[in-house]
Design a protein around this nucleic acid. Structure first.
Lengths: 192, 192
DNA sequence: TGAACAAACGGAACGCTGTCCCGTTTGACG
DNA sequence: CGTCAAACGGGACAGCGTTCCGTTTGTTCA
């Protein structure tokens, strides 16, 4: 057994790729809430096919953005190594995360854990990114740069929430607010 | 013409009150997204009646929460007068605002300006609360307690966003995050 | 090559929701 | 008490997510 995956039919594989392409394109123009029928139509398949390949919308969203989430996760340790300090690395990594979210229309809004339909999506983001954030946070706390009383989970959800609805309103700068949040957890300096 | 208001029929007035009561009760148990039919049923009216009195859901939400929003707005100047400093007053006022939002299930989520159906709601909150926030912010800036480069609009929306989905997850503390945000705009101290 | 079967398909159908329409009722007033 | 506009109720319609079922198609094996 070289690969554990089950062999898939050629048409099934092709449809799955078409669906991913169609979804990716429509997510950009119409947000992640685009109607299922629209995705199916663009991919040239029936509505049932989309459910066969991606049982929930969360599964489809994860598949579309998996690569970018992985990149974001991998950037954490790299930033920690290349930045002047852990707090600076955390700030830069949060910027990456914010930039990712605000370019994905409606994604931040469905990242809420209270939405039963998007549980999988929330779980994926937490599983993949929370450890990265926690590592940066711990490093900054160990270095004495920040107050140690903030949880990585709270910070991640806070930053995610700040990105809800961003990108539509030039008066609203999610990145600046996230920066404010990171600045706010800086420890009071002991000496001038 | 002692009052500019048009005289309303007795049944219309009664229905409007019933609708407000029903909506207030259902908003608590099921969130502000509760189906129109449910509100109408609880109030003992037809679905059309609710649209006659409150053309959009935003109008209904505003009517239900108007008193509490007014209280929050009026608390601003009072806090400014009674707090040790403008920055402290701002922090307390933000706490009031957060406490209000997190107890209204789903309210923060529909406060986004990009949702055309809730334009009125967003406008109402901005009209009523933005000047209050701006006054506190200006006072703090004048006192040199904070960096002056944050807009009241950005701060209000940021805090509002932090409250999205709060109240369901004990691990997520919107109030603490809002406090972090307020702490983050504190100016670096010049002397020890 | 072609028969047979399971995998996969498409679109109709269902239920839920917001919204609108229209025939009917009812409160106000002379 | 008659009249009429205001207000009403619930059915009708459209859009959406989801499921079901008869049909098609890729694969396998003789």
């Amino acid at each position: 057994m070289s690969d554990g995956a089950k062999p898939k039919r050629a048409d099934a594989k092709r449809n799955e790729e078409n669906l991913l392409d169609a979804a990716a394109a429509l997510f950009v123009t119409s947000g992640v809430d685009v109607p299922v029928r629209a995705i199916a139509a663009k991919a040239g398949v029936g509505t049932a096919t989309i459910y066969r390949h991606f049982p929930t919308r969360a599964d489809l969203i994860i598949a579309v953005y998996r690569h970018q989430v992985e990149s974001c996760a991998e950037a954490g340790p790299a930033l920690l190594a290349s930045s002047p300090g852990p707090h600076a690395a955390l700030g830069r990594w949060i910027d990456l995360f914010v930039d990712f979210l605000i370019t994905k229309h409606g994604l931040a809004a469905v990242l809420q854990p209270d939405n039963p339909s998007y549980e999988t999506l929330h779980a994926y983001f937490i599983d993949r990114l929370l450890p990265v954030c926690a590592q940066l946070l711990d490093a900054a706390a160990d270095a004495g740069e920040i107050r140690p009383d903030i949880s990585a989970y709270g910070l991640m959800r806070g930053v995610g929430n700040l990105c809800v609805g961003a990108g539509h309103d030039p008066r609203y700068d999610a990145r600046a607010l996230a920066g404010l949040l990171v600045a706010g957890l800086r420890r009071e300096r002991n000496s001038g």
